[in-house]
Design a protein around this nucleic acid. Structure first.
Lengths: 341, 341
DNA sequence: TTGTACGCGTTATCAG
DNA sequence: CTGATAACGCGTACAA
């Protein structure tokens, strides 16, 4: 193992004190320009690099924030990250990214990793398995602010950036209802996530408002990934209980359902209409183009990052606030009712 | 700003020495179980957390490696990251992820960021703008090994994990030729990337082998993003020089071209056939499904991570080696020649 | 202009 | 069993 060159190494090599070396390297005015030159040369010769860890031990601020997202296989989180990056760069901070892979365990490990690297604050969208409440709270208590976005913690007091999932789910469902579909199902997300609950609530309220029948299969838990949507759809086909339309928790789930639909020779939207959520790039490209709720992802990232850094830099940060951004339903071919025309 | 509780705080509160506190908290055998208990209680009371930075100042190893990728909007890099994560987790390391957004400047900033966090090694796929040679070499010289993957540096001696871009480009082009297309173009990637050069070389060699005409427009530089593919296609349409088929640098470029093709009422593959590269999830989902070269992304991540960690942990690491993984061409509808049937 | 000495928070060594 | 003390690498008052 190669040993680092330290200030001391340079000092002893040059037979001067470490203090002088330190000052020379910092290029300060109160040091002889000649010694300055000698020191710099020797530093280069020894391939000296200041040890950032030692520096931080005194400085106490790293100008770095951490991020934990569940995954970035879909384009949803990457878009948010772009927004975060922009603000972080603008404000002279740096960003460390981790992914929890939708598990609480890895999420916890990532939080600790970030903490170990002395981030000054954390942005997080929680895993679908549930929340590490205690740890969130512990971080906040120990002076590391957290801002939640998209998937937020229900019981921690902190800044949160979301959209109105309930309202959008309600809209999306009403869109299907107004299009003339009668037998409408919902593929729900993970039970523990607030977003899942909100979207399910929006769906059910819309169904109730229009007095549509709610049966045992009306709401099926399908999770976040496309294979779950595929399985759920397969199950319905097998049970011979195929609906006219399905409002899905997200785009991957809808795509999974679409795959199953096509496989058995059914057609979308003729036989089964589909609506997704949190529109990914794919929505517009697939066949048929998918109706989906478009979230202001980039803006969500910007807002969350700004709130976090504000909290870090402001001496008296504002009280915890929940910011709700505007989202909208993009109607495309997958939810057009051809029989109604 | 809340002040951290330190060992000293606990020590003074309990009127004992910091050494004892340290030992008690480390749960060592040579400390009275009663004092141990008292110390732990006081630690909890003061919400004490050990300062990892101070620890590292002596330990010198962080069990953490860093990653720099150009972007993760497409599913290509995320898949590689999954592979990396798997190995990193298995071997008890941790992973810090950064994205260069395809620019040299941010790449450099990220390298420094990782270095500042004392990563023990770095995995990188370089930005399309070019390479920070000097900095790569400096890192390696100062004892931080680097493993390149996918987009590798041409002039640094280090482990590299790639596929045979030349061969696959050659295959893909021959596939188009054997399908009966005559006027075949290539949308090339950024000029500075080795992968671009290799794929272009493969394309040109295949064209030459089969004595197909190469004109001024045959090779167009279109970059990495879909908008560039779109623009390039638009330009060809405008110039009234539309080919039978295009071999694109990657999937996004192909998708951009597809968009332009559809916009002017042309059809793929009837009017223009398309072949992509580094197959993303989308390839199978769009209309028409896109012929593309499938890279063993997950395996690439695994291999790169394994090589890096091996280099970190082995006392005498093996010489730099270039690993070439197996890739394959997946033929789909976008490159079927309907006129030939 | 340069050197001395101390602190950042922790662990390890060596006395007691 | 416990307490001083010396590192780890750097910055910086303070003294010379």
């Amino acid at each position: 193992m190669k040993k680092y060159a330290t200030l001391k190494d340079i000092a002893t090599a040059l037979k001067i004190s470490t203090a002088t070396v330190s000052r020379a390297l910092a290029d300060r005015w109160d040091v002889n320009s000649e010694t300055k030159k000698i020191v710099c040369d020797e530093a280069r010769r020894q391939n000296y690099k200041p040890n950032p860890i030692a520096k931080r031990l005194q400085n106490r601020h790293s100008k770095t924030i951490g991020l934990v997202v569940p995954e970035f296989k879909t384009s949803f989180f990457p878009l948010i990250i772009s927004g975060i990056q922009k603000v972080v760069d603008e404000l002279g901070f740096q960003l460390l990214i981790t992914q929890s892979q939708e598990t609480m365990e890895i999420e916890l490990r990532n939080l600790k990793l970030l903490e170990n690297n002395m981030v000054e604050g954390i942005l997080i969208s929680i895993s679908s398995e549930g929340e590490n409440f205690d740890y969130y709270q512990g971080l906040i208590d120990s002076g590391i602010p957290i801002v939640f976005f998209n998937r937020v913690s229900s019981c921690i007091v902190a800044h949160k950036v979301i959209i109105d999932d309930y309202k959008l789910a309600f809209f999306a469902t009403e869109h299907l209802i107004y299009s003339g579909f009668k037998k409408i199902f919902h593929f729900s997300g993970p039970d523990k996530l607030t977003v899942s609950k909100e979207r399910r609530r929006g769906f059910l309220d819309a169904m109730k408002k229009h007095h549509l029948e709610i049966t045992e299969n009306t709401v099926m838990t399908a999770g976040v990934f496309s294979d779950k949507g595929y399985e759920a759809m397969k199950l319905l086909i097998q049970k011979n209980d195929v609906p006219d339309a399905i409002f899905c928790f997200n785009d991957p789930t809808a795509l999974g359902a679409l795959k199953a639909i096509k496989e058995v020779g059914l057609s979308c939207p003729d036989d089964v209409a589909l609506v997704g959520f949190s529109e990914t790039e794919l929505a517009q490209l697939i066949d048929p183009p998918l109706t989906s709720v478009e979230q202001p992802s980039f803006e969500m990232g910007e807002t969350a990052a700004r709130l976090l850094i504000e909290q870090i830099t402001e001496p008296s940060p504002p009280a915890a606030e929940t910011v709700s951004l505007i989202a909208r339903l993009n109607i495309r071919k997958s939810s057009i009712n051809i029989h109604k025309q």
